[in-house]
Design a binder for these strands. Structure first.
Length: 1003
RNA sequence: GGCCGGGUGGCGGAAUGGCAGACGCAGCGGACUUAAAAUCCGCCGGACCGGAAGGUCCGUACGGGUUCGAAUCCCGUCCCGGCCA
C-alpha cells in the first residue's frame, strides 16, 4: 500500500479537547469568522469553496492533450504516491507531499509547461476485507465510501489535480490491465545471455525435454517463467486469515495488529525479480534519487561476489564408513578434473556459497539449514530422532529469530561427514537454524576462525577452530584473542593454507577460485540477498489471477495451467460471496460459487480457477502508466501518451516505500520495457521522500509507586510484555515507574537537558512522537481547514521545515502562517469596506527604486528556493516582502500583482481572490510566472564586515562594485578597525568583493 | 551489530567556507481600547563592564585537525531517530 499508515484522526472528536497539552482555543483564532465583522476580513471559509468550485467548473487543471505529432514538448509529470483510502480519512502527513507536488505543478503551468498531475487510490487492502468479515458490508462499498471521503478532503485543500484522470486499483477497468500485465509476466522468461525478458515461445527447449512430449515441454516452460508456482513455507496468520510477506511480520507477529504468525507450507505464486537483480542494481546509478534511498535499495538487493564450492558427501545414505567416503572422494575428484564444475551440484556433494574462498582451509565443519534436502540422507540412524526434533522446532521460528546474533546458537550433528576439497579433510556436517534455506544454497562451510556466527557455534559445540588469516605483520592471532577480539573477520594474510600462505586476502581469493575451477570443484559466483517476490495472498479483496488449473479425472490439480485470453479480461471477483471465515490457510475464494470457480475447456478439460489473489503491491506497480491515458479501452496505456508523458519527472512520497514499492514498480517496468510495451527503462526520474510529521512535542517525567520523581536517565522501557505498551522501569532498582505528562512551566533547561524546575536533579524526556490514535496526538486536516483554511494548512506544512526532514506539528505555527495570509489580505484589500475592495494604498503608479528592488529580490529568492523544493525559505522570503511592503503608504498595483502571482502556487485560493480583486477576470493559473531583472537587485552600496584575525571588528559601507584595494582602504579607514590595528603589523589582507575584508595581524 | 539521517536560542528552523540565530512561534514591554480580542511598535543566546550609548568575552553535542577565516570540510567520541539484521 502506498498510503501513509494512518492511525486515526477522524474519530469526530473535538480536536481541541485533549487536556494537559498545548491546547489551541478556537476563541483565540485570528480568523474565526465573526458575526459582527463584515466579510472583507480575510475569510478563507468564503474564499476557498468559491475558487474550488471555479476550478472545477472551468476544468482549469485539465491535462493538456498529447500533441498530434507526439513531440516531446516541455512536459512535466508530477506524481504523488497515491494513498490507501483508509477509513480514518486523511492524515496531516498526506498533504505534506501533496502540497509540495502541487506547488511544483502550479509553478510549472505558470511557466508554460504541459503538466500531468493526477491522483488515484491504492484501494485494495486488508482492512476493508476485515471490516466485511465483521459487519457483512461488502469491501467494495466500504472502499467507495472511504474514497469519497478522501476525494472530498483532497478537494478541500485545493490541489490542482486533473480529477478526470482519477483511478482506483479496485476498478475492474483498471485491474483488467493489472491482470493483463500479469499475463505478460507469465509469458516471459529471462534470457541471461541477452540480459532481457523474452516471450516464452522463444525459450529454447532442450532436445531431451522435447523428446518427452508436449506436457514435458509445458512443464519445462513453466519452470522458466517470471511468474511461477512453488510450495514455500509462508507466514500464516490465523487471526488475519492470511499469509503475510516476510516484511509484514515483525518479531513473529503480524505488523498490522500484532497477531501471532506460524509458518506453513502452501502453494504460492512467485515473481522472478531476482532475474532482474543486476539491472535493478546497475540502473540505480542513472536515477536522480537521494543517495540514502539508493543505498537502501543496493543493500536490499545485496549483491556479493564470491564463489561456489562443492563438498563431497558420497552417494550412499546414512552412516557410511569413513574409508568408503575417502575412496569415493578420490574418484569424484578425478571425475571433476575431467568434466569440470557442473551447473547443478548433483547428489554426491553439498554446494556452498562463500564470499571468502581464501578461508577454505579453515572450514572445519559444515552447516545445513534445517530445510535442506540433503539433511535426511546425511543423518545417521542414531542421530535421526535428534535431527527430526530439531527440524520441527526450527520450523516454528521466524527467520529473524533465527539469525539474531544475540541469541544462543542451536544445532545438532547429523552424524554425517563431507570432504573439504581444498585439503581432503573429513569435516562433520551439522544442522543449525542460523543458516537460512533462502540465502545462498542453504548450506555453508563454517570457518570459525574468521566468522563470528561460526565462531560462536564452534565454541558452543566444541568444534575445531583454525586460523587461516593473519591480521597484520606485528599482531598474532593469539594476541588478538587476548585482546578480547576472539575472532578475526577482516582481510589479512593467508596462513595454514598450503599454497596460499603469505598471500593477502584479495590475491588468496582469486588464486583459490582459479584452483577450484581447475579442479572442477568450484567456480566464481555472484549472490543476491534479494529473494523472489511472493506474489499471492489469501485474500478476497484483491485482483484475481487470470489463470486456470487443469484438473484430472479425480478433480485434482495436475499442475498444468491455462490462462484467460486477454480479450476476456477482466476476471472479476465473484458476486454474492459471503464473508465467513473458513479458518483454513487456503484462500477464501476456494469457497466461491461453482460457476465462478469451475469451467470446462473446449477440449473437454475440467478447469478450476486460481483462487489466490494478487498482493496490494500489484496495482501500485503501474498506476503511473495508466494516469497517462486512463480511459484507454484497447491498451493499458496508449503508446503515444506513454511516450509523451513518461518518465515521471518528480515523484514524492514517504520513505516507507523506499524498498518494496519502488523496487517492484521498477521490476515490472523493466519487464514491460523488455517486451516492448513502454519506452523508458526506468519509470521515475527524480524522487523525493517527504519526512514524517510528528505530533506536538511532549515532555514526560517519571514517578515511582511512591510518587517520587525518577530522573529519565535512570528509566528504561520495560522488557516485560505489557498490554498497553507503556511499561517503564527504574534501571537501578527495576521497579516500575509511571510516565507523567508535564508542561513547560514545570521545567528549566540545565546543561543542555530539561530538568524539573522543582528539582534540578530530575531529568525529563522531551520529544515529539509519531502521531497515533493510542497516543491521542493525531491532527485532523479537516479541523485545520475549518478553523484556518486550506491555504494556511498548505502553507504551514511547507513552512515547518525542509521537506525531507521529519518535524513536529505545532498548532501555534499554523496560527503564525494564518496571520501572514491575513496580513497579505490587508495589504491589498480594504478590510474596512463592506464589499471586497482594493486597499486605498494600492495605486496604479510606478514603483519606487526601493520597491522594485524588494520585489525583484523576492522574485529571485522565491523562484530559486521553489526550484530547490526549499519551500520553507521561499515562504520566509514572502513574509519578509510583506513585512516591508505592508507598511508602505503607496503600494503600486503592478507590485501587488507580481507578488500575488508568486504566492499563487503556495496559497492558491487567496491568490486567486486577490487577483480578481486586482481587476482580472481569468484565473491566474496560467499567468506567466514573474521574472526578475538582475540589474534591479543590487544596491549602489553595501555594508560589509571587517575582520581582524577572523573576528568581526567593524563594518563599513562601500560601493557595491568596489575592488579589493578600495575595500581594503575603506576598511583601514574605519575607526573601530583602526583601534584594533593599533601597534600591530598587517601580515596579509584578504578581501572578497561584495562580501568581507579580513586583516591578518601580528604583534 | 550494520547502513542511513540528525544534533544550532525556550520551540520549529535559517545560514553548506566569509556578519551565527533570517522567517515564524512562544515570552516580555509599550500604543490603541471602558475592557478584551485583533492590529501596530519595541526587546528577545549566555556571562561580564557601563548611567546610557556602547563594549569585551563565551557560544552551533564533545575532543582534535585543516584554513586568513569552520555551524559548514577532515579524523575521533557521545547522544537521538529511522531502516535492516
Amino acid at each position: 500500500m502506498l498510503g501513509l499508515r494512518t492511525n486515526g484522526g477522524r474519530d469526530g472528536s473535538d480536536p481541541t479537547a485533549p487536556a494537559g497539552r498545548f491546547v489551541h482555543s478556537p476563541a483565540r483564532s485570528a480568523l474565526a469568522p465573526s458575526r459582527f465583522v463584515p466579510m472583507p476580513r480575510y475569510d478563507p471559509a468564503r474564499i476557498e469553496p468559491k475558487w474550488q468550485a471555479f476550478w472545477d467548473d472551468h476544468r482549469t487543471f485539465a491535462t493538456p492533450s498529447v500533441p498530434a505529432d507526439g513531440s516531446a514538448a516541455d512536459k512535466l509529470y508530477v506524481l504523488d504516491m497515491f494513498p490507501y483510502p483508509s477509513g480514518n480519512g486523511l492524515h496531516v502527513g498526506h498533504p505534506e507531499g501533496y502540497t509540495a507536488t502541487d506547488i511544483v505543478a502550479r509553478l510549472a503551468r505558470m511557466r508554460g509547461k504541459q503538466v500531468l498531475h493526477p491522483m488515484g487510490w491504492d484501494a485494495f487492502g486488508l482492512p476493508a476485507e476485515q471490516h466485511a468479515v465483521k459487519t457483512g458490508v461488502h469491501p467494495r462499498e466500504t472502499t467507495a465510501k472511504n474514497i469519497d471521503t478522501f476525494r472530498r478532503q483532497l478537494k478541500s485543500l485545493g490541489f490542482s489535480y486533473d480529477w478526470d484522470r482519477e483511478l482506483s486499483t479496485t476498478d475492474p477497468e483498471y485491474f483488467r490491465w493489472t491482470q493483463w500485465i500479469f499475463l505478460e509476466l507469465y509469458d516471459t522468461w529471462y534470457d541471461a545471455e541477452q540480459k532481457k525478458g523474452r516471450p516464452i515461445a522463444e525459450l529454447p527447449i532442450p532436445e531431451e525435454v522435447q523428446a518427452d512430449g508436449e506436457e514435458a515441454v509445458r512443464r519445462y516452460q513453466d519452470g522458466k517463467r517470471l511468474a511461477y508456482q512453488t510450495h514455500a513455507p509462508v507466514n500464516w496468520c490465523p487471526e488475519l486469515r492470511t499469509v503475510l510477506a516476510n516484511e509484514e511480520v515483525i518479531d513473529g507477529k503480524s505488523e498490522r495488529g500484532g497477531h501471532p504468525v506460524v509458518r506453513l507450507p502452501l502453494r504460492q505464486w512467485m515473481l522472478r525479480i531476482t532475474a532482474y537483480a543486476d539491472r535493478l542494481l546497475g540502473d540505480l546509478d542513472t536515477l536522480d534519487w537521494p543517495e540514502s534511498l539508493k543505498s537502501l535499495q543496493r543493500n536490499w538487493i545485496g549483491k556479493s561476489t564470491g564463489c561456489e564450492v562443492d563438498f563431497y558427501i558420497g552417494e550412499a545414505s546414512g552412516g557410511r564408513q569413513p574409508a568408503e567416503l575417502q575412496d569415493g572422494f578420490e574418484d569424484w575428484q578425478t571425475g571433476r578434473q575431467t568434466h569440470g564444475f557442473p551447473d547443478q551440484p548433483g547428489n554426491d556433494c553439498l554446494r556452498v556459497y562463500t564470499t571468502r574462498p581464501d578461508t577454505l582451509h579453515g572450514a572445519t565443519y559444515m552447516v545445513l539449514a534445517p530445510e535442506h534436502p540433503a539433511v535426511d540422507r546425511l543423518t545417521t540412524p542414531e542421530q535421526q530422532a535428534a535431527v527430526k526434533d530439531y527440524q520441527q522446532k526450527a520450523s516454528e521460528k521466524s527467520d529473524l529469530a533465527r539469525t539474531d546474533l544475540a541469541k544462543e546458537k542451536t544445532g545438532v550433528f547429523t552424524g554425517g561427514y563431507a570432504i573439504n576439497p581444498a585439503n581432503g579433510e573429513r569435516v562433520p556436517v551439522w544442522v543449525a537454524d542460523y543458516v537460512l534455506i533462502s540465502y545462498g544454497t542453504g548450506a555453508i562451510m563454517a570457518v570459525p576462525g574468521h566468522d563470528e556466527r561460526d565462531f560462536e557455534f564452534a565454541k558452543q559445540f566444541g568444534l575445531p577452530i583454525r586460523q587461516v588469516v593473519r591480521p597484520g605483520d606485528s599482531e598474532t592471532f593469539e594476541s588478538l584473542r587476548d585482546a578480547d577480539v576472539e575472532v578475526f573477520i577482516h582481510e589479512g594474510t593467508a596462513v595454514n593454507s598450503g599454497d596460499l600462505d603469505g598471500l593477502p586476502t584479495a590475491q588468496a581469493k582469486s588464486q583459490m577460485i582459479d584452483w577450484l575451477r581447475e579442479a572442477g570443484t568450484g567456480a566464481a559466483a555472484v549472490n543476491y540477498k534479494l529473494r523472489d517476490w511472493l506474489f499471492s495472498r489469501q485474500h478476497f479483496w484483491g485482483e484475481p489471477f487470470p489463470l486456470w488449473h487443469e484438473l484430472d479425472g479425480d478433480g485434482k490439480e495436475t499442475g498444468l495451467l491455462r490462462t484467460d485470453d486477454a480479450a476476456d479480461l477482466p476476471v472479476k471477483l465473484p458476486e454474492n460471496f459471503e464473508f465467513k471465515p473458513h479458518g483454513r490457510p487456503e484462500p477464501p475464494l476456494d469457497e466461491a460459487p461453482d460457476d465462478w470457480l469451475y469451467k470446462t475447456a473446449a477440449d473437454g478439460t475440467k478447469l478450476k480457477r486460481e483462487t489466490n489473489s494478487m498482493p496490494q503491491w500489484a496495482g501500485s506497480c503501474w498506476y503511473f502508466l495508466r494516469f497517462c491515458d486512463p480511459h484507454n479501452d484497447d491498451r493499458f496505456v496508449g503508446a503515444g501518451a506513454e511516450k509523451y508523458w513518461m518518465p515521471v519527472d518528480l515523484y514524492i512520497g514517504g520513505a516507507e516505500h523506499a524498498v518494496l514499492h519502488l523496487l517492484y514498480a521498477r521490476f515490472w517496468h523493466k519487464v514491460l520495457y523488455d517486451r516492448g510495451h513502454v519506452s523508458t527503462v526506468e519509470p521515475f526520474g527524480r524522487l523525493v521522500n517527504q519526512g514524517m510529521i510528528l505530533g506536538e512535542p511532549e515532555v514526560t517525567g517519571y514517578q515511582n509507586a511512591a510518587l517520587q520523581w525518577i530522573s529519565s536517565d535512570d528509566v528504561e522501557a520495560s522488557t516485560a510484555e505489557d498490554e498497553d505498551g507503556t511499561g517503564f522501569v527504574q534501571k537501578s532498582t527495576g521497579e516500575p515507574v509511571q510516565p507523567v505528562k508535564l508542561n513547560a512551566a514545570q521545567l528549566v533547561k540545565m546543561g543542555g537537558v530539561f530538568v524539573l524546575a522543582a528539582d534540578g536533579e530530575i531529568k525529563v524526556d522531551q520529544r515529539a512522537h509519531k502521531m497515533s490514535k493510542s497516543r491521542g496526538n493525531v491532527v485532523n486536516p479537516d479541523s485545520i481547514v475549518a478553523e484556518y483554511g486550506a491555504d494556511s494548512l498548505r502553507l504551514y506544512e511547507m513552512f515547518m521545515g525542509p521537506l525531507e526532514q521529519s518535524k513536529p506539528w505545532q498548532m501555534s505555527g499554523v496560527e503564525g502562517v494564518a496571520r501572514f495570509l491575513a496580513r497579505v489580505w490587508r495589504t491589498i484589500a480594504d478590510e474596512q469596506a463592506d464589499e471586497p475592495t482594493l486597499n486605498a494604498a494600492v495605486q496604479d503608479v510606478e514603483p519606487t527604486e526601493e520597491q522594485e528592488r524588494l520585489l525583484h529580490q523576492t522574485i529571485k529568492a522565491v523562484t530559486n528556493d521553489a526550484d530547490r523544493l526549499s519551500f520553507n525559505t521561499a515562504i520566509s522570503r514572502m513574509m519578509e516582502f510583506t513585512n516591508a511592503f505592508s507598511s508602505m503608504e503607496t503600494r503600486p498595483k503592478s507590485v501587488c500583482e507580481q507578488f500575488t502571482l508568486l504566492l499563487a502556487p503556495f496559497a492558491p485560493h487567496l491568490a486567486e481572490e486577490l487577483w480578481s480583486l486586482l481587476g482580472h477576470d481569468e484565473s491566474l493559473a496560467y499567468e506567466p510566472w514573474p521574472t526578475w531583472d538582475e540589474s534591479k537587485l543590487t544596491e549602489s552600496s553595501v555594508e560589509i564586515p571587517v575582520q581582524i584575525n577572523g573576528k568581526v571588528r567593524g563594518r563599513v559601507r562601500i560601493p557595491a562594485d568596489a575592488d579589493r584595494d578600495a575595500m581594503t582602504a575603506a576598511a583601514k579607514a574605519d575607526e573601530s578597525v583602526q583601534s584594533h590595528l593599533e601597534g600591530k603589523t598587517i601580515v596579509k589582507a584578504i578581501a572578497v568583493p561584495g562580501r568581507m575584508v579580513n586583516f591578518v595581524v601580528k604583534g
